[in-house]
């Protein structure tokens, strides 16, 4: 599955980069993942980078329709093939990624930097609460045991993280989880799982990430 395509959170939705394999396999794998992770994709904006693939009108049109049946919008198709670009335009799709507003207004010395889409939640998540979002999730408050966050990107908790979190839920191994007090019931990044050993006292703020295939938590000042 992972070899067919890659999903990444970008500032206005999700960017799916298609591998070199067969188009039909990609299409199948994408639709399967979308129906399995319905909550994750719902309401998302998708851009697909098809790379070298050269597509027929029927292939692109039917993919767009299938995707919209899942409540997801296909916004752009990025391609190296002129024919595919033209086709995308006739279907009313964009052919390049939207630039963040700051970049668009570019002055001679542009000191602004782009960023990614994130959801900011300013409250404590209690047992039974759950958040699932394709981008990054930022909580200002605690995440109590029994609460759950599933994010396509990073998870940042300005408070105590004691519930269950899954960062990089669509396969991004570079996702991180950080919290002022990182003592989750369970923490997952991409496919890797870690369970916090019981701790004494209050730990310092920490960042969890995957290093050499394992989830590692380290003090925030060491994570660079």
């Amino acid at each position: 599955m992972a070899s067919q395509f890659e999903i990444k959170g970008i500032h206005d939705g999700l960017l799916i980069t298609v591998g070199d394999g067969d188009w039909a396999d990609f299409r199948q794998a994408l639709l399967t993942q979308m129906s399995e992770q319905e909550d994750f994709f719902r309401g998302a904006n998708i851009s697909i980078d098809v790379g070298e693939h050269s597509l027929k009108a029927a292939e692109l049109g039917s993919l767009r329709d299938k995707i919209s049946e899942q409540g997801v919008m296909l916004r752009a198709v990025i391609s190296k093939s002129a024919q595919t670009n033209e086709l995308a335009q006739t279907l009313g799709l964009e052919t390049h990624l939207a630039k963040p507003i700051a970049e668009r207004s570019g002055s001679a010395f542009d000191t602004s930097i782009g960023g990614d889409e994130a959801m900011l939640v300013k409250r404590t998540l209690r047992s039974g609460n759950s958040i699932s979002y394709p981008g990054h999730v930022i909580i200002v408050g605690d995440v109590n045991p029994g609460a759950e966050i599933i994010a396509g990107g990073d998870i940042i908790v300005w408070g105590r993280l004691r519930g269950t979190v899954h960062a990089g839920a669509s396969g991004d191994e570079n996702a991180i989880v950080c919290a002022l007090e990182l003592t989750p019931t369970q923490l997952r990044i991409s496919e890797e799982i870690s369970i916090t050993p019981p701790q004494k006292g209050t730990p310092p703020p920490e960042v969890a990430s995957i290093k050499d295939g394992e989830v590692i938590a380290e003090g925030w000042e060491f994570h660079k």
Binding site: R126, S127, G128, N129, N144, P145, G146
Partner: peptide, 8 residues
Amino acid sequence: RDADRIIG
């Protein structure tokens, strides 16, 4: 845990 849920 249940109290937390109820409070929410």
